[in-house]
Design a binder for these strands. Sequence first.
DNA 1: TCCTAAATAATATATATTCTTATTTACTAG
DNA 2: CTAGTAAATAAGAATATATATTATTTAGGA
Lengths: 152, 152
Amino acid sequence: MDENIRKRLHEMRKNGYKITPQRQEIVNAFLDSSRKLPLSAEEVYMKVKEKYQNISLDTVYRNLAVLQNLKIINRVNFHDVKSRYELNPGGDHQHHMICLTCGSAEPINFCPLKLLSENNFAAEKNFEIREHTFELFGYCSTCRERAIIDNA
Amino acid sequence: MDENIRKRLHEMRKNGYKITPQRQEIVNAFLDSSRKLPLSAEEVYMKVKEKYQNISLDTVYRNLAVLQNLKIINRVNFHDVKSRYELNPGGDHQHHMICLTCGSAEPINFCPLKLLSENNFAAEKNFEIREHTFELFGYCSTCRERAIIDNA
DNA sequence: TCCTAAATAATATATATTCTTATTTACTAG
DNA sequence: CTAGTAAATAAGAATATATATTATTTAGGA
């Protein structure tokens, strides 16, 4: 996946974008992160700051927007106020199961939109679907097991 | 639906909540609203202010949280930053088609969770689902027709 | 190497939401 | 009906997220 992402990053040039060190490091923040939880703008900022002490939060936001437009990352809206972002290896989109205890976000292999299009939902309603959100919130297997042990 | 909501409002007392004039007026703001678009905290605030000039925005937020806990209203997270709220006549939940042009939100008669439970999705993943989000964003029939006319 | 559009840092600003505290009020038990 | 109390309130400060402005710097093509 890393190669796929790096390749798409370099293709930015074709569209008039420049590949600045800051921009690269922002992408690296995602590539380096082994965490399941997508990163907030603040977290990306802290990570990049390790290498570029002077980077401004504004630069992070601006780049997250650019990378999002190019579908290199996706923005995920969780229940907490701030938005989070994750790499988008397939260039498509991804839904998640988000644990209310530990905050981990596991991708789920299901998209409700496929069912709606099979049923001609949008055509019937005469509604042109452009985007959609779908996320599950609950308790992951790890946290559930831990809860059982704690109560024993 | 109004009666249902009012009945549930009065049942709050059983749980130690008080029915203050402000609280009632906040619920009225929703009952009076014929708009399809769920109300933002700010909009509720402006509405209630007509009757209680001194109400604070904090009171609105506090009550929206309480009413949400009691499932009298639902919070809907749209793409724009601020959250919105709507009455929940069924005491259940509701998904929407949100128009990116006019902002209207039409309820949709479909919940992806039903399909997941039919397929034992949660059991397989050992994930305990507690909440979920699902919203469609796009262009409603009215705005689409208008666009065609404008381009003619 | 030079030129220019793009990107950046720094700073200010906007907006949404929550917290703190002192005061008031709705309800309940007597 | 009254008094006591937990709950709710207003006011204002505080926090957090995100965006706008501007002057300066820089990536990368010519």
